[in-house]
């Protein structure tokens, strides 16, 4: 990765950056504007990027800072949501899987921005709690707390604490991910 020209490396992170923008804004037009600002800012400030450090984290940080600055300027907490999650399914899974994913996306949509962001950074993008904390400009404990609250809220919204629901999701999850390490 480090052998690449930084500008070429930037391009390789764009799909993940766009996924992060979509998950944060939940609105394609806003996500595209955020992407544009981020790419322009990163490209023209490439001399400020320290080679050998995590470019994806750097790009995500620029994007999220843009997002929260813009949200503060607009003085609104509620995003203009356009069902980014629900209409992005490009490959249709089986019927049960599709229903479960639809429910999951709807629940994800209901999380506060900060909790969804923390969960996406740690749970989906694979950043360590410490990295996510640095990116969000908060303490590591704050990120852990946001992730825990986000997971608890999703579990509540999806009724994952119910015995029956857990059994159903077990079957689907194991079928999809084939993780034999899960406790029975």
């Amino acid at each position: 990765m480090s052998d690449l020209d930084p500008r070429d490396e930037l391009v390789t992170h764009l799909p993940a950056l766009r996924a992060f923008a979509l998950s944060l804004t939940r609105n394609r037009a806003t996500a595209d504007d955020m992407m544009q600002d981020t790419v322009l800012k990163a490209w023209t400030n490439m001399d400020k990027f320290e080679p050998g450090t995590n470019m994806r984290a750097w790009l995500f940080t620029i994007l999220r800072n843009n997002f929260y600055t813009s949200r503060r300027k607009l003085n609104r907490e509620v995003a203009d949501v356009d069902n980014v999650f629900s209409d992005s399914l490009s490959v249709k899974p089986d019927h049960d899987g599709r229903l479960q994913m639809t429910d999951f996306k709807a629940a994800l949509n209901q999380l506060p921005d900060e909790q969804r962001e923390a969960l996406v950074l740690v749970g989906a993008s694979g950043f360590a709690y410490e990295e996510a904390a640095e990116m969000c400009g908060v303490a590591t404990g704050t990120i852990k707390s946001r992730v825990n609250r986000a997971r608890a809220r999703l579990a509540e919204l999806l009724h994952l604490d119910d015995d029956e629901a857990l059994e159903l999701t077990d079957t689907a999850t194991i079928a999809v991910v084939g993780n034999p390490g899960l406790p029975a």
């Binding site: 799909p15 993940a16 766009r18 998950s23 992005s88 490009s90």
Partner: peptide, 8 residues
């Protein structure tokens, strides 16, 4: 969900 968004 994230990998679906990446293929957008």
């Amino acid at each position: 969900v994230f990998s679906e968004l990446e293929t957008d």
